[in-house]
Amino acid sequence: MAQSLVKEFTKGLWAEIPLFRLVLGLCPALAVTKTCENGIGMGMATTFVLLFSNILVSMLRNIIPSKVRIACYIVIIATFVTIVEFVMQAYTYELFLKLGIFIPLIVVNCVVLGRAEAFAGKNTVMLSAADGLGMGIGFTLALSSLGAVRELIGAGTLTVWGGTPLFTIGHGYIPFQFMVEAPGAFVGLGMMLCLMNLIGKK
């Protein structure tokens, strides 16, 4: 049991890391990763939703009739998303402002619904929790690394938390603003996927 828990947890971190391997959850990945901080915030919000929706879906998996499965899952997910929205507004308001419309849109993040369908709907609570947590952390990792790359190149800074850059590239650096613009988001993610392909699965 413990072993499979670890397995379900770790697969989300590398072997099936949602953004890079499964190429799911692109919208937030592209939209909010202007800074590393945003990526981390979005990732954490998604992790929270993933974890709890996975737990709840897995708890209710025998009760929910299959015809309204999607509707029920989505209600569960949306509930947690709204809770996250409230909590973020209450405690990390600045971040909330930056992530904007993308917080409610966690609800339609394919990663979340995908895990509910593919995993939580078929597995026990513990396993689903491990899966959700692993996938969430993997997603966070992916978002924050993409955010870090984009921010470093595009703005010359690295912000991890709290809005102040942790690190700024030397004075003479002229930020390559393309990377923080919309096209740069696509290109940056494409390049990261390429990098992941080069590194390989193992």
Partner: peptide, 22 residues
């Protein structure tokens, strides 16, 4: 190139289109 195939190059192409749409 192999490493860029499929989604990766798809994203880069999408980036170009986003660039064009500016």
């Amino acid at each position: 190139p192999k490493a860029l195939q499929d989604t990766s190059i798809g994203l880069i192409t999408a980036g170009m289109i986003a660039l064009v749409f500016t």
